[in-house]
């Protein structure tokens, strides 16, 4: 599904943000990208959702070397990826429902069905009464939930989420992680970047640990006693 081979990234002439990163995520897997703030998590995700090109190394997505893709092929590939951005990136001139519908429309999906699914999903994340609200009238947590709904509504083959629970309370954070796990069970490959250790240890999935621009693939973090309590 995702194959990084000695990938490096630097912005312009600045220092290397990522250095010789090599890993492979299989289709249908669930991974956390874990590291402190500034470790390069967002930069790594940008490479995964084709938001940037690597300075060096090879990236393969869905079995395709991204360097060989035409612009139209990149667009087609991006439609298979749902992204939850750290800063949400909602369009302020569109309502909550329209924001969620936008990627459905770009993909050319059936309008009526898309509308029903989007409304249903927004209701599930607790925004059923805010379908016509504009993003600037919503709280940070509500905006984040709209961003998550937008990313998952098209049932993407790959879901990439950058700190998706950063602005929501613990209860909703857990609910959202369950949603991601549900999508994963349906076949979506899920990658979640977070610096929230307790969340990572609570949900037992492999971890790609980032530190100082280098990455290391590890097994699930050992759950803390508090996590065990919560599960019970």
């Amino acid at each position: 599904m995702i194959d990084f081979d000695e990938v490096s990234l630097r912005y312009a002439t600045g220092p290397e943000i990522l250095r010789d990163v090599t890993f492979k995520f299989d289709p249908g897997s669930f991974h956390f990208v874990f590291g402190a703030s500034g470790a390069g998590k967002s930069s790594l995700l940008k490479l995964m959702y084709l938001g940037r090109s690597a300075s060096a190394g090879a990236i393969s997505l869905f079995g395709r070397d991204v360097r060989s893709l035409t612009r139209d092929e990149r667009a087609q590939l991006r439609r298979k990826i749902g992204v939850v951005f750290q800063d949400f990136r909602l369009l302020e001139h569109l309502s909550t429902l329209e924001n969620v519908l936008l990627c459905q429309e770009i993909a050319g999906r059936d309008a009526t069905r898309s509308r029903e699914e989007a409304a249903e999903l927004l209701a599930w994340v607790g925004l059923g009464n805010h379908l016509d609200a504009f993003p600037q009238t919503l709280s940070g947590g509500q905006q984040q939930r709209v961003a998550i709904a937008r990313a998952v509504v098209g049932r993407p083959r790959l879901l990439i989420a950058d700190e998706p629970t950063g602005n929501v309370d613990d209860t909703l954070a857990v609910r959202l992680l369950y949603l991601f796990e549900e999508l994963n069970r349906l076949g979506t490959t899920v990658i979640i970047a977070t610096h929230n250790k307790s969340l990572v240890s609570r949900f037992q999935h492999p971890v790609l640990r980032l530190a100082k621009g280098s990455a290391q693939l590890e097994g699930p973090l050992a759950p803390t006693p508090r996590d065990k309590e919560a599960v019970q």
Binding site: R71, A75, Q76, R78, R89, L91, I106
Partner: peptide, 16 residues
Amino acid sequence: APVIELLHLMGAEDRY
């Protein structure tokens, strides 16, 4: 530019 970048990331082609 930010909106266009977002549309591209959602899978919009240049002609869109």
